[in-house]
Design a protein around this nucleic acid. Structure first.
Length: 592
RNA sequence: GCAUUGAUGGUCUAGUGGCUAUGACUGCGGCCUUCCAAGCCGCAAACCCGGGUUCGAAUCCCGGUCGAUGCACCA
């Protein structure tokens, strides 16, 4: 049983992750988050909001998960996503069916469906180019889930394959919201859908999954980051192209500042979010030694991207798993949507000081050209404006321009021209997009795997053969599903009453707590460890008998115990959970 | 999508044509118990789905679903 099996076993037993639709036999590529898993996931999402919404100031939006066809035509998801594949019966390699036929010089293959393609393959006796075996039936694969909007034949719609398009489509509104000042960013946390051919690896490859994406719109000429100093000296584990291409495959350690200075990372803006991602993932509980940032190789990078870094997390079974992608998408998306929608998606940037340029300008006297050329006057005027200084100087008393194949001769004295000092107070640009994109399900699984621990315990005084071990989920306090468990030492009514009161106090203070009085205290502690509750509070007879009402707080990771007065419990718990106070300093350390 | 392989209570598992389908852990109800799982009594809970062969199928055959692995795919 490897770690994946152990984590998934625990996840299933204790209510973190369940296969969806199990009652009816299930379906591949879908998972339910149970009560504890859902809580952990929400907490990770909220931590992400702390980073991006609270600290980075990127406001959250919510766009529909269904998109109309235009969006995905513009984004390229509709066109590029419907490829017919055929597979060799011998070696198992897949090929583009249409490409095999086209290779014979046959035209118009693109319009054929798979049945027709199969007929062509048989007719032309096409075999596997690798091994010469027979080819299987061809099939379409398109990762988009399609649906219909409205009744009848309806209008085609698609479940979004990424949340990003929502931010691009709302660009103009967002730009106005941010008072048309770059850089600005918006985020979205939500479900995306890809009809994966073969979902595997549990929650790492889902057909419906949760993304947290941030889209920053920046001035293409200003890719420095205003808060770069915050992360400048942070050391990162980087795996750049050069290291991937040499045989050793070693990662390098470098500060963010160094990586930008020596060109390892393309620019500050990208580097800043690589560092922020490092910060976020470690805060969520990813072990720093199992985290690296891998640069996309030039051939795997989308053709429009300038530079792209993935946060990869090491897992026991699957090795390095891509959990976050941080890309400079340039102006690709906005330009594509502008073209598709025929609406200009740009921002006007005013220079700090207007720039004056000397330019050669042509000013036709439209008052005279009007009566002369009537309906063609405007076109003639425009043609004149296009003329270069040389062309005008070289001409004699008359200038001839051609408009729509017709020549017009204009007396030169109807045209004013010359050098002119032009004031340029700004520029209109299509912003570039910097996109940090997080796979929340993958992160949640990796947080669970990294939290999972089996600890061997000394098997008591006797030399019993079975060594005792306990399973502990060492969640960080901020992602743990419950923060505190409250127990009466045993199920006596007088103890229960006090325990329930303290439980209510904790809940009233906003602390997510669990109450449990079943079985022995030791068993309950083990249960708490297994679902990763950081602290357990136990009420015993001292609590009701002694003057200062001591309760015991047990620390999950060390199993150490301290005594605190019941009246101080809420305050002490808050200090412990926020990390402001150390465990041993929060009460009287005891051993039993 | 193809190939290989598997599927028995919540979990792990025994059973391989023939009783009311093992056992353990977990869970629940008691008893006992003054701080780290396995003390006692009791209870609950399963043969992946569909078809076929057979007097009789959890068991054999075929198809499907789901899981694992390999190939391919992962914009």
């Amino acid at each position: 049983m490897d770690k994946y099996d152990k984590v998934m076993d625990l996840a299933k037993r204790r209510g973190f992750l369940w296969n969806s639709f199990e009652l009816y036999g299930g379906a591949a590529g879908f998972f339910d988050y149970g009560p504890l898993g859902c809580t952990v996931k929400r907490k990770i999402e909220n931590l992400w909001r702390d980073f991006y919404v609270l600290n980075e100031g990127c406001m959250e939006i919510e766009a529909p998960t269904i998109g109309i066809e235009d969006i995905f035509v513009a984004s390229g998801h509709v066109g590029g996503f419907s490829d017919p594949l055929t597979e060799c019966s011998g070696c198992g390699q897949s090929f583009r069916a249409d490409h095999l036929i086209e290779a014979l010089g046959i035209e118009g293959v693109g319009a054929l469906n798979t049945t027709q393609l199969d007929e062509m393959i048989v007719e032309h006796n096409i075999v596997c180019p690798e091994c010469g075996c027979k080819l299987g039936k061809s099939f379409e694969f398109n990762l988009m889930f399609q649906t219909k909007i409205g009744p009848g034949t309806g209008r085609p719609g698609y479940l979004r394959p990424e949340t990003a398009q929502g931010m691009f489509v709302d660009f103009q509104r967002l730009s106005r919201f941010y008072r048309e000042k770059l850089p600005f960013g918006a985020v979205q946390i939500g479900k995306s859908y890809r009809n994966e051919i073969s979902p595997r690896q549990g929650v790492l490859r889902l057909r419906e999954f949760t993304q947290a994406e941030c889209e920053f719109f920046v001035d293409p000429d200003v890719k420095t980051h205003p808060n770069f100093d915050k992360y400048k000296d942070v050391k990162l584990t980087l795996y750049p192209q050069a290291q991937q291409e040499d045989e050793t495959g070693t990662t390098i350690q470098k500060t963010v500042g160094e990586a930008v200075a020596d060109g390892t990372i393309a620019h500050e803006f990208l580097a800043y979010y690589v560092a922020l991602t490092n910060d976020f993932l470690t805060c969520a509980g990813i072990s720093p030694e199992d985290l690296r940032f891998r640069q996309h190789l030039s051939d795997e990078m989308a053709h429009y991207a300038v530079d792209c870094w993935d946060a990869e997390i090491k897992t026991d079974r699957f090795g390095w798993v891509e959990a976050v992608g941080i890309a400079d998408r340039t102006d690709y998306d906005l330009t594509a949507h502008a073209k598709q929608s025929k609406v200009e998606l740009s921002v006007y940037i005013e220079y700090p000081e207007p720039i004056f340029e000397t330019k050669f300008v042509v000013k036709p006297d439209m008052g005279k050209l009007g009566p002369l050329f009537k309906g063609q006057a405007k076109a003639v005027g425009d043609a004149l404006k296009e003329l270069s200084a040389d062309a005008i100087q070289a001409a004699g008393d008359e200038i001839t321009v051609s408009v729509n194949g017709e020549n017009f001769t204009v007396p030169k004295n109807l045209i004013a021209f010359g050098e002119e000092n032009v004031k340029i107070s700004g520029k209109t640009i299509v912003p570039h997009v910097i996109e940090p994109s997080y796979g929340i399900d993958r992160i949640t699984y990796c947080v669970m795997e990294h939290a999972y621990d089996e600890e061997d315990l000394a098997a008591g005084a006797s030399e019993e053969d079975d060594e005792e071990s306990r399973i502990v989920m060492r969640f960080k306090n901020i992602v743990a599903p419950y923060q505190v468990a409250v127990h009466p030492l045993m199920g006596k009514p007088e103890l229960s009453a006090v325990a329930k009161k303290l439980f209510n106090d904790l809940v009233a203070a906003g602390i997510m707590s669990d109450y449990d009085e079943s079985g022995t205290i030791g068993k309950r502690y083990r249960r708490n460890d297994e679902i990763g509750i950081p602290f357990s509070v136990t009420i015993d007879f001292d609590t009701i008998e002694k003057e200062n009402k001591p309760v015991t707080i047990r620390d999950r990771d060390t199993m150490k115990q301290i005594l605190v007065s019941a009246g101080d419990l809420v305050a002490v718990m808050k200090g412990l959970l926020s990390g402001e106070k150390r465990f041993e300093e929060s009460g009287e350390v005891i051993s039993r």
